[in-house]
Design a protein around this nucleic acid. Sequence first.
RNA 1: GCCGCUGUGGUGAAACUGGCAGACACAAGGGACUUAAAAUCCCUCGAUAGAAAUAUCAUAUGGGUUCGAUUCCCAUCGGCGGCACCA
Length: 802
Amino acid sequence: MTERYDPQIIERKWQKKWEEQKCFEAEASHDKPKFFGLIEFPYPSGQGLHVGHPRPFTAMDVISRKRRMQGYNVLFPIGYDAFGLPTENYAIKTGIHPAKVTHDNIQRFREQLKRLGYSFDYSREVNTTDPAYYKWTQWIFLKFYEKGLAYKAEIPINFCTSCKVGLANEEVVDGVCERCGGKVIRMIRSQWMLKITEYAQRLIDDLDKVQYLDKIKTQQINWIGRSEGAEVNFQIAGTDDKLLIYTTRADTMFGATYMVVSPEHPVIEKYRDRILNMDEVSDYQKQAALKSDFERGELAKEKTGVEVKGLRAVNPVTKKEIPIWISDYVLMGYGTGAIMAVPAHDTRDYEFAKKFDLPIVEVVAGGDIEKEAFTDCDHGKMINSGFLNGLEVKDAIAAIIDYLEKEGIGKRKINYKLRDWVFSRQRYWGEPIPLVHCDQCGWVPIPEDELPLTLPMLDDFTPTDDGSSCLARAKDWLQTTCPKCGRPAVREADTMPNWAGSSWYFLRYCDAHNNKAFADPEELKYWLPIDWYNGGMEHTTLHLLYSRFWHKFLYDCGLVPTEEPYMKRTSHGMVLGANGEKMSKSRGNVVNPDDYINEFGADAFRMYIMFMGAFDQPIPWNEQGTRGCRKFLDRVWRLQEMISDSEKSSAKIYSSLHGCIKKVSEDIERMKFNTAIAAMMSFVNDVYAEGTLSKEDLHTFLQLLNPFAPHIAEEMNEQLGFEQLHHSSWPEYDEKALIEEQVEYGIQINGKIRARISLPAGISKEEIEKAVLSSEEIVKQVQGRTVRKVIVVKNIVNIVVS
RNA sequence: GCCGCUGUGGUGAAACUGGCAGACACAAGGGACUUAAAAUCCCUCGAUAGAAAUAUCAUAUGGGUUCGAUUCCCAUCGGCGGCACCA
C-alpha cells in the first residue's frame, strides 16, 4: 500500500533537489538547439504575488519543461522590474528607502515563485534597480543621445497645485490629485524625448517578420496610426502668414467652411493684437490647459470652442474667407495643431458646426447631411466641388492633391499618430540620466568609465516645490564638473521612466553577469531571438513597442544580431477577483496564492490556474477550483494501486493513452492548457473504469503530467523506478492506436440530426450514402418525401428532402 | 469617443478549417460505504412537455448568407483591455 499523497513533503523535496542539481540552469554549451522562453518580469509590489501572476508564469513553465524533454537547451529566466511609482510613494509615506523596500519585496517574490516550482534559471536573475544592471540602461541611453535620437522638448506634465508634485496620469482622477484632491494643472517642462517616430514605418513593416497574434499586430499598427494624406496651407486673410493643416480627406476641401486651431497653437500668440476678443480666447486657453488630451478627445463631451474674431482664413480652392475657431478637440500633438473643418463629412466637425451654427456644405453625395455627417469614402460622388464634381472619393483625393502640388498650396504627406516618447520623470526611484549641463558646452554625456551613475542615498524623497524630483535637492550629487571643459556643471535631476529597464532586460538574460558589455555578442547570437514571449494584452502598445524600438536601434548600432527581439508573442487573459472586477488593493479583492498552496499544494494550484478557463480570456477567480484539481491529483496518486503485473495495458487503455499524448502535445503548443488537462482527466477516468494499467503506460502518462504538476509527477515516477522525468524524452503517439474500426455518423435531415448510424471506417462516400439511405430508420423518416441532395462531410450526412 | 477583444447551462468552460452544442470540471441533488463525519465510489443534472421512447425550443438581441451557423456578414445591446507619467 502506498502512502497518502502529501504535497507539502513531496514539493519541498523536489524543489530542493532541482536547486541542488541545478536542473533548470541553461547549459553553457551552444551545441544543442536552443529555446528562449520569456515571461514579463514582475514588478515586485509590496503585496507579494497575487493569483494573477502564476497564470502566464505557469503557462511558460509548462512550455519550457516540455521543450527540455524535447531536447532543447532552454533559457527560461526571471527578474524584477523594480523601479517605479508605488515603491517611491511608499517610501515617501514611511521614510523607508526604496532600495530597502525593493530588496525585501524581491525576497518575498522569489520565495513565492520557488514554492510554485517554476523551472526558472535563477542564476541569471536580473533586477533593474541594481547599479550593475542600470549601468547598461544608462549606457544604451547614451547611445541614443550619441545618435541624435534623444533630445529635449517642452512638454506639459500634470502638476498638483496643492502637493506641488508632478503626477502620473493615473494619479489624476477626475481632474484632481488622487492623494489630496488638489487642483491639477498642466505645467510645461523641458524633458528628454526619444525619437521613436523615426522607427514608425519599420515598426509596422517588420511585423511581417514575426509571429504575433493578429490582434497584437493590429493593435500596434493602429497605435502607430499611419495615414496617407496631404498638408495644405490656408492663407490668413490680410497677412503673409499661412495656417498649415493635415488632412486625409483632401477631396472634401470645397466643403471646408471654417478652421479650428488647438488652444496652444502659436498663431494665437503671434496675432494677439489683431484678435478682437483676446480676453475670451485666453480664458478658453486657460480652461483647456486643465484638461488632459484624453479628456479633450472624448467625443461624448459637449464640444466647446471660441471664435477667434479678427482673424480669418482663405479656403484655397473656393477662395472664400472662412472663420477661425479655437477648440480643445484639436490637439497640438497630432498633425499640425490646426484643421480645416468639413462639417458635412466629419463627425466631430459636424457636431461642432451644429452647436455653433456654422455653415455645412455637402460635397460628397450619398448621405443625409440634415441628420448626420456622411463619412463613408467608398460610396458617393463629389458635388459642389468645381473640377472634382462627378469623381469617386478615391479619385478626387488623387486629383486634388495633384492640383495642390502643382499650385504650390500643399503636398502629399504620410502622418503617424505615434508620438515621440517622453523619457523624463520628476522622480527619485528611476535610473539617473547620465548627462550633465554645462553653461559652455551644453548637455554633455558622462564618460563611459564613470557609469553607472548611481542614485545618491537620500532620506527625503518628496519632490521639490517646482515639480523637480528630490534629486534637485541633493546638491553634492548635482554639482559636478563638465567632462568636456572641466568647468562647474550640473547633473540632470530627472530620472528615466520605468519602461527604460524593461526595454532590454531580455538581452541581459543572455549573459547576466557580464561587466564588460551588456551581453557577450556570442551569447546574443546563440540565444536571440526570443522564441516565445507571452505577456498581457495591456502591454501591447507601450512595453512591447518600446522594447522593439530599442532592439531595432541596437541592431542599427550593430550591437544585437537580430532586427526583432521576439519571434512569437502571445497573450493571456487577466485573472479577475471573485467578483469579476480587476484585482486591486483598493477593491479589496486581491487573492494570494499562498493560502491555496498551503491547503492543496502547488501542483493542484498550478493545475487549476491552467484548467480554470481559456488561457487568452479574462477569468474571475473561483475559490472551489483548486480543491477540484487536488481531487484529480489524488486520483492520479492512486493509479499506483492499479499497476498490473503484465507488461501491457489493455488495448483500450493503450489507445486512450495515445489519444491523450496527441491531445496534450498539440494543446500545449496552442496554449489550450484547459483542454490538455481535460484530456488527462479523461484518461484517468478511463483507467479507473478499466481498473488497471501497465507500469510503462503510467510512466508515459506522468511524462505528460510533468509540465503541469512536476512535483507529484517526479515523485510517482521515482517510485516506479524510472530516471527523472525532466531528463526523459517527450512521448510520441502511436498513430495506429488512434484508428477506430467503427465510425459513428450523425444523420441530418434538412440540417437537423435525426439519427446516428455506426459504419465501418474507411468506406467511400458513395458507400456511406447508400448505407444511410437504405437504413430502416432513414427509410421511415424520408418516406413520402423527395430526396433532393445528400451531403457527406466528415462524419455528418445531411439529407435534403422536400 | 477611438483602437483591440469578448458574450454558450446554476458556475468555469468545450466544440481545432462552417459539420452530432454543452467534452472536462465546479456547485447542487440522490444513493453506497461508515456508529457518525470526512474521504472515496456510483447515479442525475440546458429549458419546456411526457411515465418513457421522444418532440419542441436553446450559444446576448434582431436580420442575412448557407444543404447546414456558437463559428461568416450587417445592425443593436452588455462586459473587458489600452489610450502614451501605473506596471
